[in-house]
């Protein structure tokens, strides 16, 4: 006989109360009041949103942001998947690989963006090396271009791609690869038909994380991307500087809605939740 416990223990909820109150006061209230501004400035109106489809600056910047996020997502996927595979397949090296992934991950984004400025600059390490090797006559212009933003963001966001994929790969029963091999599948066929499809929840989770984080990236594009090819977060910052509160609030709402929409869609994908679940080893 099993007793069914129907009453909930209120204790766990109480334990989270200090944090919940803090988040309400210093996060939820400001966000909501900022979002309200987009429909209440100058008076109650939806005009701020209605104007966006005809706003060339917004359209260009929004498009730019989506393209940059997509490139970064694809870049991190192409570079991150093999690393995740190595992390899981070479357990001897896993601690070293993990440290190499996590050390930069724990380092400030500001520091890493500065580092990329040093590397990519006109007299930076990359240009100087290529010049010294005689591969270039004149230094390449990389810093202050979209390419610089894409390179730096790909680097910074790589761990968000690697860790969920590695987590998904680790959850695959190793006897499946054996079974496939025993049934006549070559190592490549085993990867194509068994490992890759079974790791898709991790891939989806990694892509979602990277894309959503890339959408709102500010420091890196502002530092290495330069003032010409700006992203949505940079535009918001500019508008705040110019005290265009209503416009900034509207843009912020669009950014938030885009991110939340993507998360809502992806959360319906089968298996993606298991990829977010951290694996206790």
């Amino acid at each position: 006989m099993r007793a069914v416990q129907k009453t909930m223990n209120p204790m766990p909820l109480l334990l989270t109360a200090p944090l919940v109150l803090f988040m309400l006061a210093f996060y939820a209230v400001p966000v909501v009041s900022m979002l309200m501004r987009s429909v209440s400035d100058p008076t109650w109106t939806v005009a701020n949103y209605a104007a966006l489809p005809d706003d060339p600056v917004f359209l260009k910047v929004f498009w730019n942001t989506l393209v940059t996020s997509l490139i970064v997502t694809v870049g991190t996927l192409l570079m991150g998947y093999p690393v995740a595979l190595a992390l899981v397949r070479a357990p001897k090296w896993a601690p070293v690989i993990l440290i190499l992934i996590l050390l930069p991950f724990w380092t400030s984004v500001l520091v890493r963006s500065y580092a990329w400025m040093v590397l990519l600059g006109r007299h930076g390490l990359i240009n100087e090396s290529l010049l010294a090797a005689g591969l270039l006559d004149r230094p390449l212009r990389i810093l202050n271009t979209p390419l610089a933003t894409q390179i730096a963001m790909t680097h910074i966001l790589l761990p968000y791609m690697i860790l969920p994929i590695a987590n998904a790969l680790r959850q695959i029963d190793p006897s499946l690869a054996r079974a496939a091999s025993g049934l006549g599948a070559s190592p490549f066929a085993t990867f194509r038909q068994v490992t890759l499809p079974l790791s898709m929840p991790g891939v989806a989770a990694g892509m979602l994380l990277v894309f959503v984080l890339a959408l709102g990236f500010y420091i890196t594009p502002a530092m290495v991307g330069g003032p010409r090819e700006i992203t949505l977060s940079m535009l918001i910052s500019q508008q705040v500087d110019q005290l265009n509160w209503a416009y900034a609030a509207t843009l912020s709402a669009v950014l938030l809605a885009t991110a939340l929409g993507l998360i809502a869609v992806c959360y319906r994908l089968p298996g993606i939740r298991s990829a977010f679940r951290m694996n206790a080893r």
Binding site: D173, S175, L176, R178, A179, A180, G182, L183, P197, L198
Partner: peptide, 12 residues
């Protein structure tokens, strides 16, 4: 042909 203890069927 091989049969494993835990079946090793492909879940997908």
């Amino acid at each position: 042909g091989m049969v494993f203890q835990n079946y090793a069927l492909f879940p997908h």
